[in-house]
Design a protein around this nucleic acid. Structure first.
Length: 843
DNA sequence: AGCACGCCGACT
DNA sequence: GTCGGCGTGCTC
């Protein structure tokens, strides 16, 4: 813009300087954007979607995203200047910014919260206060009276350019170091300043090459050989280098060099002779910036052989995409949906767009990544919660630069900077874990991905063996397309499902702890046949609670309204809500009896008892407790894959995405807790879980078996699971949802009121519910009610549920009513510190 | 979310 | 008498 003006008028006449302002999104939970003034010389550099540095408040300097550039000078205040521009290209794309605004709007949070969740923290900058010596202060000459602590700080600053506050804290071994800093500032011995530092650091490897002056021509290299002849070890190193880097063929190869480990990795080459060569100046060390994602495979976009059913499904999907933007692929477990996805991704890449392939956290395994790597090679980016910050930033940049065209990732991948999306795949579409519950943004990646696809004109394919009722409803009403795959891949049979009535078995004295005789025999059989078994128990730990046999005392969490779970491996009682833990008491703190008994059972107990009952079984447990370390998850899977272990006991984790050839039996130890969960989705969930776990049994020609232990085998859900009758489950569920007014017929918003004082929480919720009822009518507001777990982290909870009829509600207006009601409630002095959280489409 | 400003208890 | 506790309110 400025160039344009300068072009038209000579600079000295260009008095009409246009002043621009930028509305920026701060990475904070603030409801509005803040307007900063763009310094004239930055007019061309400040771009929507790029990061700029601003001072916010009296000292903090931080990076934020430019959301809008305009010329409207704020009337009521003097805008501060933008201090610096960090990016010469936007790091947030225009469609992304639109999506973020939608998320903030739809899920009732601030844009700052969205940005905060979206950006890898390596791309977020915030300043830190640092101190350095005052430029006019000379500690050697100026005589100041200093406290010993102050002298210490000055001494440290004479040897270090600058210190952060926490540096000072560690230096003095003190928590209250502030007064010394203050005093030194007053004495003008030091100054304080704000420093932002870029957290993204490219990965650097140390490499070696022959020093340049030896490779200018052949003769010099020969001379070098002669020189080194008396030192055979060093000569060896050189020869080895030339073998790996044939400099004699192309002299420029030397420039790229070789890593030290590559060179040293040959036998009888010692590191010391390499080091000697470095010291002599024959080899030189240099740093090279490399990708954190090394290219292991080149993309092989060859046509892949799809089975007849897969090819048919693919054609149907492509056919439906001509008229619909969204299609559901409903394929039974083991029908080979992944191959269909891969084929469609290739198809999408051919037309030049980007692809996002969403998977739930626990289904995104090394297995699937490797498979995709083989096909898409270095075009594939992976986005995972176990990735480091720098790795995430690199994926982010890689998508912007066009290096990654396909991304396979978890929930948060919907925040990535796609700008030319042509296909989105949402696998395991029904998964509740696509919904983030805490903290804000409380978004559902499925809905967000659908909106992103919509904004970018991309097609969306949802996939599931057990679709959510909402999704299937959208297909049934014709909004979305539907493609069914009813055959398992390679003619594999669906497993045979057997129910064991644990109530009866107990009467017949046929229960061995939590195992029925039938299940034990079946496990033994598989082990004898060298086959493998998966056991599912939906509860971690040893026992969900313990109880005194004498006085019935049950240990409870001191911060939450739940009993403490017993974890045997560390002899601890632990709260699964806040993490509080204490040692398992030896005797009852209430009555002193030594008869504390564990009640119920979790995965740890299953593992324990199975080892006792079947001593020749190699049992491994997979749950949150055994997979906390970075690679333990992979290790457990690898051990099971290679047959090192033959029984895998686990929670939800064993139900998704795992394909093991030799698993011929799956046991569900206690189906009842899953079915009887107090939630309108309990049946749907139970069905999904049972079908998904069952799907782990039997592949190829071996039909698998599933044994479900339950006290109530007559539950109609079992009939549906056994006959794989999704449709009848759906029809039953949709009817109930209609009758009791639940999604998909209404949108739900759950408002949770929290306060330390039970009465305050209750009263606040009553007032809020009343206000909401006045605003939106009696039909739409339910509660307040006390949730099943009524206290978490010392906050008492109250819930108000709002039901908004899907077709008739003006969503935006309804949400603004809710926001108003919350705002007004907080204005009341009694309720000023109640915490209120709105959760849109809770799951 | 920070951070500053502002009003009440335990220390030199 | 001050230091420093954290309650309230603002940040372009």
């Amino acid at each position: 813009m400025s160039e344009l003006l300068n072009f038209n008028y000579p600079p000295e006449q260009a008095v009409e300087r246009v002043t621009f302002f930028a509305d920026v999104i701060l990475p904070l939970p603030l409801p509005k954007l803040y307007t900063y003034r763009i310094p004239f010389e930055m007019n061309d550099e400040v771009l929507v979607g790029a990061r700029v540095i601003v001072q916010f408040g009296s000292k903090k300097v931080l990076s934020c995203i430019v959301a809008e550039i305009h010329q409207n000078a704020p009337a009521e205040y003097q805008a501060k200047y933008i201090l610096d521009v960090l990016d010469d290209k936007p790091i947030i794309t225009t469609p992304q910014l639109k999506l973020f605004k939608w998320i903030a709007d739809y899920y009732m949070c601030t844009l700052g919260e969205v940005i905060n969740a979206a950006l890898p923290s390596a791309l977020k900058l915030s300043s830190e206060s640092r101190i350095q010596l005052h430029p006019h202060y000379n500690p050697e000459e100026d005589e100041l009276i200093l406290a010993p602590q102050e002298e210490k700080i000055i001494y440290a600053l004479q040897h270090n350019q600058a210190l952060t506050f926490s540096d000072v804290g560690t230096l003095l071994q003190l928590k209250s170091y502030h007064k010394f800093i203050k005093s030194l500032i007053q004495k003008e011995a030091i100054i304080i300043y704000e420093q932002v530092s870029d957290k993204f650091s490219p990965k650097v490897v140390k490499k070696l090459r022959i020093s340049e002056h030896f490779v200018q021509d052949e003769g010099m290299l020969e001379e070098l050989f002669n020189q080194l002849a008396p030192q055979p070890k060093q000569l060896d190193v050189l020869l080895n280098y030339l073998q790996k880097v044939p400099v004699h063929q192309d002299i420029h190869l030397n420039y790229k060099g070789i890593t030290k480990s590559e060179l040293a990795n040959s036998p009888h080459l010692s590191a010391s002779s390499i080091n000697t060569l470095i010291k002599k100046g024959v080899l030189e060390q240099f740093d090279q910036v490399v990708s954190r994602f090394p290219v292991e495979h080149q993309a092989k976009l060859l046509p892949m052989a799809l089975s007849e059913h897969q090819a048919k499904a693919k054609d149907e999907i492509l056919g439906l995409f001509k008229e619909k933007d969204t299609v559901l692929l409903h394929g039974v477990t083991g029908s080979g949906k992944t191959e269909v996805y891969i084929d469609l991704i290739k198809h999408a890449l051919d037309s030049g767009g980007q692809v996002l392939y969403l998977l739930p956290e626990i289904a995104l395994t090394a297995q699937i990544v490797q498979r995709l790597m083989k096909v898409f090679g270095d075009k594939l980016g992976v986005y995972h919660s176990k990735f480091s910050d720098n790795e995430r930033a690199e994926v982010w940049q890689g998508i912007l630069s066009g290096r990654f065209q396909v991304v396979v990732g978890v929930r948060s991948s919907v925040f990535l900077p796609f700008h030319d999306l042509s296909l989105v795949i949402i696998d395991e579409e029904h998964e509740a874990s696509y919904k983030q519950y805490d903290p804000a943004p409380r978004y559902n990646a499925r809905e967000t991905a659908l909106m992103m696809a919509h904004l970018q004109g991309a097609k969306t394919l949802l996939g599931s063996a057990t679709p959510s009722v909402e999704t299937y409803y959208n297909c049934k009403t014709g909004r979305w397309g539907l493609v069914e795959m009813t055959k398992r891949f390679g003619e594999a049979q669906l497993p045979d499902i057997e129910l064991v009535n644990t109530r009866e078995e107990q009467h017949r004295k046929n229960m061995h702890s939590h195992f029925s005789g039938k299940l034990l025999t079946a496990i033994e059989e598989r082990l004898n046949r060298k086959e493998q078994v998966i056991l599912f128990q939906n509860r971690r730990g040893y026992a969900p609670f313990i109880s005194c046999e004498e006085c019935s005392w049950i240990p409870k969490c001191r911060h939450c309204a739940v009993s403490l779970s017993y974890h045997k491996y560390n002899n601890e009682l632990r709260c699964h809500y806040c993490g509080y833990h204490e040692r398992m008491p030896h005797d009852c703190p209430a009555c002193g009896a030594t008869t504390l008994k564990s009640m119920g059972f979790g995965t740890e107990k299953v593992e324990d008892e199975l080892k006792l009952l079947l001593p020749n079984a190699d049992v491994q447990r997979m749950d949150l407790d055994t997979t906390k370390k970075k690679n333990s998850y992979q290790q457990i899977i690898a051990d099971f894959e290679t047959g090192k272990t033959n029984v895998l006991v686990g929670t939800q984790m064993v139900t998704k995405g795992l394909d093991f050839e030799h698993v011929s039996l799956v046991g569900i130890l206690n189906a009842d807790t899953i079915i009887n969960f107090p939630d309108f989705r309990a049946h749907e969930r139970a069905y999904q879980l049972f079908v998904q776990v069952s799907g782990r049994a039997g592949r190829k020609e071996k039909p698998g078996a599933v044994i479900i232990q339950t006290r109530d085998p007559l539950q109609p859900i079992f009939r549906k699971v056994r006959s794989n009758d999704y449709l009848s489950l759906y029809e039953h569920e949709i009817e109930e949802r209609m009758r009791f007014v639940y999604p998909p017929f209404v949108r739900m918003i759950k408002v949770t009121v929290k306060h330390m004082d039970e009465r305050v929480a209750e009263n606040a919720a009553i007032v809020l519910a009343k206000d909401l009822t006045d605003r939106m009518g009696k039909q739409q507001v339910l509660g307040p009610e006390v949730p099943y777990i009524f206290k978490i982290r010392n906050l008492f909870l109250q819930e108000v549920h709002i039901k908004l009829p899907r077709e008739t509600t003006n969503l935006r207006a309804a949400k603004s009513q809710i926001a108003q009601a919350i705002f007004n409630l907080k204005l009341l002095p009694d309720f000023k510190d109640v915490r209120i959280v709105a959760d849109v489409d809770p799951v």
